[in-house]
Nucleic acid binder design. Structure first.
Ligand SMILES: [Zn+2]
Length: 363
DNA sequence: TATGCCGGGCG
DNA sequence: CGCCCGGCATA
């Protein structure tokens, strides 16, 4: 007759894994398919619960969980109800840095992210003007800008060697043996295709290119989320993942969601045993923390070559007004235990006696 | 460390 | 079910 109220959806479950990932996508995936993201024109959705379900990254995260990967959402300022989610791809090896490597010959372009546009210009001013006039309908004179255009275009870096021709999404091999030290990381398009392991593909066109690797030698983990429509590894809508996007809105706050590794339980030396079976959710609350480097695995010795994750940013629906829905925050009010004390345990409500959620002092 | 309570085990 | 408790997140 009584049911214990539990906010399972808000609970974090432990995940046994070490590793982190960065999701990237060159444009807001708005195609009509599972996992699609809504453009923020949809202001109605802002701050609503529905909005949260709009973003496919949650889903992506959900799936990543199966591969023991961490997802780090970056929140953009509240004025912009958009979310930058970053997931980095860690190649195997003991030391995975999460900084963007200096690419050889890169050419910076600016791509319009407006749905079905994709116009690419070589100057920021140009793209801004394009967006302002074409998409935002601000014919007004030149200069006026509230900065909104910024969110509809992105800076992309193209490898001039490969050009736009090869629509091969970045799919770092993660199962292959660690590469020898390499002064310069190879161009994205040279990355080997998905090596062994299970390659998961979502039928969605909006799939987010995700490749994951565990930086922990103990476990093997290779997953690829999305990237292809149907059975083809390369979707024509996917090539966007090729770009090394660089969202220059550096003011995002981070809300890192990392997956703790192994077991911390009392006594059991369970290091190395993994059981990725729990549910997973992301808290949109952004702690005052900023980017603090790798939180997953400290670089240990071993002179193996180091590879870096490719980092690309992504826009998605805004969390906004989420101050409340973070993780279960223990209620302030004192409960039976504290009120009556251990010695008067018989005065506690039954729930408290059974170590359940107090039903006498609810908050 | 203390508190709150989820998840699971037992009868 | 009622009841208890390990273990974990949080304060
Ligand atoms: Zn109580």
């Amino acid at each position: 007759m009584m049911s214990w109220s539990r906010n399972d959806s808000n609970r974090f479950q432990r995940l046994s894994a070490a590793g982190s990932s960065i999701i990237f996508h060159a444009s807001i995936p708005t195609a009509e398919a599972p996992g699609k993201l809504k453009n923020r024109d949809d202001k109605k959705l802002v701050s609503t619960d529905k909005e949260k379900n709009q973003n496919g990254f949650t889903t992506a995260s959900e799936r990543l969980r199966g591969h023991r990967v961490a997802v780090e959402p970056y929140l953009s300022p509240e004025t912009l109800p958009s979310l930058l989610t970053s997931v980095s791809v860690f190649p195997p090896g003991p030391c995975a840095s999460r900084f963007i490597p200096p690419f050889n010959s890169m050419k910076v372009m600016f791509k319009c992210l407006w749905k079905n546009c994709g116009k690419v210009l070589s100057t920021a001013a140009g793209i801004q003007r394009h967006i302002r006039t074409v998409h935002l309908g601000r014919n007004c004179d030149s200069d006026w800008s509230d900065g909104e255009e910024d969110f509809y275009y992105t800076e992309i870096k193209l490898n001039t060697d490969e050009g736009l021709g090869g629509p091969s999404p970045a799919t770092p091999s993660v199962l292959s043996p660690p590469l020898p030290p390499h002064p310069h990381p190879p161009p994205l398009s040279h990355l080997p295709p998905v090596a062994g392991g299970d390659a998961h593909r979502s039928p969605a066109q909006n799939s987010i290119g995700i490749s994951v690797a565990k930086d922990n030698h103990g476990g093997v983990c290779n997953g690829r989320l999305g990237g292809g429509g149907g059975a083809t590894p390369l979707s024509r809508s996917a090539p966007s993942a090729l770009y090394l996007i660089h969202a220059d809105h550096a003011y995002q706050a981070t809300a890192p969601v990392s997956i703790p590794s192994a077991d911390s339980g009392g006594g059991g030396p369970a290091v190395g045993s993994f059981t990725p079976t729990n549910s997973f959710s992301i808290s949109w609350q952004s702690p005052p923390v900023t980017f603090t480097g790798n939180s997953v695995s400290p670089c240990k010795s071993q002179s193996l070559g180091e590879q870096r994750p490719q980092t690309i940013a992504v826009l998605s629906s805004p969390p906004r007004a989420t101050a409340a829905i973070s993780r279960k925050v223990r209620g302030e009010g004192k409960k039976c235990r504290k009120v009556y004390g251990m010695e008067n345990r018989d005065m506690w409500c039954t729930a408290c006696r059974w170590k359940k959620a107090c039903q006498r002092f609810t908050d």
